[in-house]
Amino acid sequence: MTIQAYAIDVKNLTKRFGDKLVVDHFDVKVPKGKIYGFLGPNGSGKTTTLRMICGLLTPDEGEGTALGLDIRTEALEIKKRIGYMTQKFSFWEDLTIRENLEFVATVYGLDHKKQRVDEALTKLNLATRQKQLAGSLSGGWKQRLALAACILHDPQLLLLDEPTAGVDPKARREFWDEIHKLAANGLTVLVSTHYMDEAERCHAIIYMSYGKLVTQGSVQDVIQGAGLYTWVVQGENLMSLAATLEKLDAVKTVAPFGDSLHVSGTDADSLKAALTPYFDNPAYDWHQESPSFEDVFIRYMADAEDNFLAKKEAG
């Protein structure tokens, strides 16, 4: 693939706040026209990375391009071609939906402003509410306004920072349908999220933790690459069982899912050996399953935390 095939191509991206290393030599490549999910626990550096890509923060180290433009020197050109949706709603609450969009259209210097705004309003079903103040909208509508404003100038790359936090499932579904429609037209999307179902709707995911890239690839690849083996147990009094199992060395994570527990480990044999004593207990019903993405996610989270603490103690 040529460089042009990537909408985002950054290497060694590093950012420190004071002596805190927030993003630590982070590499990422996002091919054009793809939807990439950006995952990682809170404080892992996702927002900082997105801000560096769109020129809101200057990287301390590293280099790279967004849409073929240097993120260090061509931030202004990048800003014209990308849409960035902030984590917190950041449009003007004392302006109406229409006024917000008109402001954005004017700043980007769009032709046929009125027409473009009308189109955006219709596209995202905002037309009937266009005279409503943005501050009076509920979460779902605010997010819809933000999306409308971000794509108003036909960007080639969308950076979305937890766009669906606090939005109901129906609105989330509609939002993702919209994202897929945009991607089908060639738009590249990098979207950070905490929702597993959303991650599974992406072409690929990037997992980041403590400022470092942990893994990336399609959801299937990531699940397989994690080398995780999961047993599912159903029965009575699972919480006390969970407490017992967590102490076993072979068991890496124990997570309750409704009326069952997912018990995961990285070594199939030792996990089975460790669990065998409990198989005979008639109160429990055991079977093996391929790990869910969430099992993998939680496993990575726990791992990263262990590494971090180990490093901290060593240092």
Binding site: C54, G55, L56, L76, K79, K80, Y84, T86, K88, F89, S90, F91, W92, E93, V104, V107, Y108
Partner: peptide, 13 residues
């Protein structure tokens, strides 16, 4: 304070 600055800075202005 309202977070709109981040938005303004992300725009080409």
């Amino acid at each position: 304070e309202r977070g709109t600055m981040e938005n303004l800075l992300a725009m080409p202005i």
